[in-house]
Each structure stands twice: as C-alpha cells, then as structure tokens.
C-alpha cells in the first residue's frame, strides 16, 4: 500500500503517481479540502482518501475505485467515465456532472445540480439532492433515497430518476412515469450493488415527457 500525505506531498505528485500506476492500493492523508485530488486516473487502482476534499476530486475517473472518507467540494467525479467514486459524507454542487459511465455513490446529501447533464453515469444518493438536479440529463440513473429540491430533471432528454422522498417542483418536461417491473428490477440491482439500504418499491420514477426535444411533425410549421 502506498501512502501520500498531502501535508508534505503535492497533489501533482499524487496524481502523477496515479497516472503512472497500473494497479495499486493507495491512501491519501490530510486532503484538507485541496482541489483535484485523484483526477484523471485511468487504471484499476483503489484510492482511499482520509478526509474532506475540495473541487473536482476524482474528475474524469476511469476504472479506479475512489473512496472519500469525508465531504466532497464542488464537481466531484465530474465527467466520470467508469469505475466507482464513493463519498462517505456530503457532496457539494454539480456532483457527477456530465458523467458518461461508472457509478457515483453519495452516502450523505448532495447539494444543487447533482448529475447535471449526466450522460450515462449511475448516481446513488443515500440522502437528499438540491435544486436543479439531473438538469438536461441524457442517459444513466439518478437515485435519491431522500428528497429532491426544486426543478428536478429540468429539460431532461433521457435518463431515469428515482426518488423515495418528497420532491419540490418538477423541472420543465420532467414527469412522473410508471415504475415498470424492468425499472424496479434495475433500481433494486443498483441499490444492492452500491450497498445502499433502501427498498426499491418505495421509490417513484421520473423521466422525460419528450415534448421539449423531440421533433413533432404536427408542429413542423413552428420550427
């Protein structure tokens, strides 16, 4: 196991090590809210971060398993491609923004714009999410075990949103949809695989009404 102590080692040295490593088990001590910790990793390393991180932790993550034993600042796992990022605490705004794949698990709450423009990532939040979450979401799933703030799924293209608690106002073109057996199954699988203790049957599903982005031949004259 490799240990980086950010009180003495630089974030740049840590990230370079992660970019060079093909496999490793690595612990990061004293993150102290620093930015860009474990960014751009492209191999199956396991990174365990012992504390709170600042902006853009685990950005562009590929293959790696990153665990943050604390809170994450804005933009955690931004543009995640694959692998897993797990946050034991809360995440600040735009967690998992534009993520293309992989899994983001937030064991606490996420604030505004969680999963904004998500393009395939699965995001599971054990707590609640703030306003404008899944804004312009295109693909993937956002699972919220707590409540969701206003304008959930505003201007959503495709993507599945599951919420167990209350939601504020739904965003433009986001509607409640039927929870089919297939959706229930995939939600239950996601909850099990991420180790989040919640009953899939207690969730409601939301998604796109497909009125905002679809070409509608009846309205051809309006375009």
């Amino acid at each position: 196991m490799t240990v980086f102590d950010l009180n003495s080692d630089s974030v740049r040295a840590l990230n370079q090590h992660l970019h060079d490593a093909s496999s490793d088990y690595l612990t990061v001590k004293n993150p102290a809210g620093r930015h860009c910790i474990a960014c751009g990793v492209d191999s199956a390393v396991e990174v365990s971060i012992d504390g709170h991180v600042g902006y853009y932790c685990a950005g562009m993550n590929k293959k790696a398993q990153v665990t943050i034993a604390g809170n994450a600042g804005p933009g955690v796992a931004e543009n995640i491609m694959s692998g897993t990022v797990r946050i034991r605490g809360n995440a600040s705004q735009y967690a998992g923004a534009s993520g293309r794949g992989g899994t983001l698990i937030i064991e606490g709450d996420a604030s505004a714009r969680c999963g904004i423009s998500m393009k395939g990532v699965d995001i599971v939040v054990a707590g609640s999410v703030g306003h404008m979450s899944a804004f312009m979401a295109q693909k993937g799933s956002l699972v919220v075990c707590g409540d969701a703030g206003d304008f959930l799924g505003d201007s959503i293209y495709e993507a599945c949103i599951y919420v167990r608690g209350k939601i504020g106002e739904l965003g433009a073109d986001c509607i409640e949809k039927e929870m089919t057996a297939a959706h229930l199954d995939s939600l239950a699988q996601l909850l099990t695989s991420t180790g989040v203790d919640a009953n899939a049957k207690e969730f409601r599903r939301y998604g796109s009404a497909r009125k905002l982005y679809n070409f509608n031949v009846d309205h051809a004259d309006d375009y």
């Binding site: 102290a32 809210g33 620093r34 709170h52 600042g54 902006y55 809170n71 600042g73």
Partner: peptide, 11 residues
C-alpha cells in the same frame, strides 16, 4: 463557528 468559500480555509 466558521464560514468560508471553501473548506480548505476552515481546515
């Protein structure tokens, strides 16, 4: 009690 733009100040 503290507030800051970023956690690293509070750290």
């Amino acid at each position: 009690v503290a507030m800051a733009s970023e956690f690293r100040a509070i750290a």
